[in-house]
């Protein structure tokens, strides 16, 4: 546990320092007030720390809810498609049609049907994440070697035991890999979704700061999105390490 805390700390310091380094370089090179200095921004962050915390919390809750819901629905569906190739052949063409669609374009439709509140925003993130996870889980389950299946049959396992002891552990890395990719896309889409009909969320904070031409506040919001992304990725890494320990 101490080792993983140290690794988290090193990773965090390295990430923040390189982020600040690139930012400082851009600040010096651009010499434009649209890119404020990291020090001014950090001062601003300290000044509005409670407000920033509130916006970050709102965005985090939306992302976490969407990630959890997408995983809960996508994992059984992906396993189902892998176990029943007939249904896979039937549903895969639809998945392939839906997958490349820019889901953010549907935000107005989602808002129309599901209201302006959190539900439509979470639904947008959910729709972005779920397809990625379904396809990843299905492919992961399809790649399980036949020999592993033979071992399970050898021990007279039933379908549920196959899922519990073989499929779920085997596809766990696939689930995490798809979540890693999804987090990046979800954060980018969240910025878009939070520009509409909300007063809380980092997307809203960044856009409203931009409108006010308060660039240190805008960059404070951007920095918080980066921090949020870092923390989500670290959480998934920790989950992976934990799964190898148990």
């Amino acid at each position: 546990m101490k080792k993983s805390s140290a690794s988290f700390f090193h990773s965090f310091i390295l990430g923040v320092l390189s982020y600040l380094g690139i930012w400082t370089l851009l600040f010096i090179l651009s010499n434009n007030h649209a890119i404020p200095s990291p020090i001014t921004t950090l001062e601003k962050m300290w000044e509005i720390k409670y407000l920033l915390g509130l916006h970050t919390l709102a965005s985090s809750l939306r992302i976490v809810t969407a990630l959890l819901l997408a995983t809960i629905f996508a994992v059984p569906l992906g396993i189902f498609l892998s176990m029943f190739p007939k249904f896979d052949r039937l549903l895969s063409p639809l998945l392939y049609f839906l997958y490349p669609l820019p889901k953010v374009a549907f935000l107005p439709v989602l808002m129309l049907f599901f209201g302006l509140g959190n539900f439509s925003k979470i639904l947008l993130l959910f729709s972005i994440i779920i397809l990625q996870v379904i396809i990843s889980v299905r492919d992961g389950a399809n790649r399980i070697p036949d020999n592993y299946q033979r071992i399970m049959s050898n021990f007279q396992s039933n379908t549920w035991q196959n899922i519990r002891y073989l499929i779920l552990p085997a596809i766990f890395p696939n689930i995490l890999a798809s979540l890693r990719v999804s987090i990046g896309i979800a954060l980018a889409s969240l910025f878009f979704a939070e520009n509409y009909a909300t007063t809380y969320g980092l997307g809203y904070l960044i856009l409203s700061a931009w409108m006010k031409m308060d660039y240190p506040e805008m960059f404070a919001g951007i920095f918080c999105i980066a921090l949020l992304g870092f923390l989500f990725f670290q959480a998934i890494d920790a989950l992976e390490r934990f799964s190898y320990k148990i």
Partner: peptide
């Protein structure tokens, strides 16, 4: 089996 197939996890 011939090549022991222990689950890697």
């Amino acid at each position: 089996f011939q090549n022991n197939h222990l689950f890697p996890w």
